[in-house]
Simulated assay, not measured.
Amino acid sequence: MPTELEELVEFLHSPQPAVVQISLDNLVGYSQGPQQLIFNHNNYEPIKDLKRLVRDKGKTMVNQSLTILVNLCDSLLIRKLLLDDDEFMTYLVQQIVNIQNSNADLMTILLTNLAKNDGINKILDMKVKHDEVNSKVFKSTKAIDCLMDLFVKGFDRSLNKYADFDYLAYFFADLSRFLEGRTYFITNQEYDEVVPLSKLLVFTEKYDNKIRREGVSSTIKNSLFDTNSHMKLLEDEKINLLPYILLPIAGPEEIDEDDMFNLPDELQLLPSDKKRDPLDAIICIHLESLLLLCTTRPGREYLREKAVYAIIKELHKATDNEEVAELIDRLVQMLQRDEAPEDADVDTDSDSDDEKVVEIV
């Protein structure tokens, strides 16, 4: 005989909405912890039911179905079942883009959870359809362009009064782990002639929103694994990447005048109440971005010209976090050592001055 829980999940495909609602009311609590295995019942039949119920017209039923799917996404297999369903994924993204959707944020969280799987790259080729309302907001039918617009323009609920789209920051961070994703973020887009990464930079100092800061800083870092793009991101005035990495790690300390006017304009003469990012974990991400910029000689020389060492030296004095201090030390070794002549042969066994440890002074 079926157990009580098995009966509950069987009720998900009842033809009677009231029965389905009772089932959902009870099952939400079982979507976390060891009891979530009940959703594997009968070869994952409950997952098929939940995907169908997400399309229901009842707000409560949709909300509960989404909540269960979000909670089940710690399972690699369930993520794959959802992600491999092209029709479901198209519907999910279409509904996130629907600026009248009251469940848009919950759907965004589900999409973000699914981005842990490699197959999320399919979204870069996905198109959405716009009704009369949406066509006034979006210039592109590419799903990724619309998601970018939602994140940038909808953060204050001005596009959708039910959604702030914060979790797209983590979605972008996961998407940028892949070559195709990185390429999107650093490439001028035809629909608005803007490099997508440049739209995200303003959120690196949004200290009242950890999700946006953390997701955007990770997207920046992941995009910098494309070393060929470094100088464009640094030198193109429309992007101007460096200040957005340095401002969150800069404090109120006075900088020597010799260094002050070599800093990017945005870092000069900071106010006495200037605050660093309050989270060491996010400061670490920015330091890792600077380390990535140091992987090419032109990048290192650019950071030296912009007196980056002056900023990280003050950060070193102010921090008591071991991971931050370790990253600073690695960065100092990259920035403060003398460069070998460009035509010199590299001797990996040499004890030359270039290999000596540089102290932070």
Rank of each mutant, 00 (worst) to 15 (best):
M1N: 11
V9A: 09
E10M: 11
V20F: 03
I22M: 09
I22P: 00
S23N: 03
Y30A: 04
Y30M: 11
P34Q: 11
P34M: 08
P34D: 12
I38S: 08
N40R: 13
L50T: 05
K51Y: 10
K57C: 04
G58T: 12
K59T: 14
N63R: 14
Q64Y: 14
S75V: 11
L82Q: 10
L83A: 11
D85W: 12
E87F: 07
E87M: 05
Y91W: 15
L92H: 09
Q94K: 02
Q95H: 11
I99F: 01
M107K: 14
M107H: 03
L114W: 12
D118W: 04
G119A: 05
E132C: 00
V133C: 04
V137E: 05
K139N: 10
S140Q: 02
S140A: 03
T141L: 07
K142H: 09
C146A: 14
C146S: 13
M148S: 11
D149M: 01
G154H: 11
G154C: 06
N160A: 06
D164Q: 12
D164T: 12
Y167P: 01
L168H: 09
A169C: 04
A169D: 06
F171V: 05
G181T: 07
R182T: 08
R182D: 05
T183L: 01
I186Q: 00
T187L: 04
Q189L: 01
D192Q: 06
E193G: 01
V194H: 05
L200E: 09
R213S: 03
S217M: 08
N228K: 13
S229H: 04
M231H: 06
L242R: 04
L242I: 08
I245H: 05
L246M: 12
E253G: 00
E253H: 10
M260A: 12
D265F: 14
L267E: 03
S272Q: 14
L279I: 10
I283M: 08
C284A: 09
I285D: 07
L287W: 10
E288F: 02
L290Y: 11
L291A: 09
C294T: 14
R300D: 01
E301V: 12
L303F: 08
K313Y: 15
A318G: 05
T319A: 01
E323K: 15
L327W: 06
D329S: 14
M334E: 15
M334T: 02
A340M: 15
V358L: 11
E359W: 08
V361C: 06
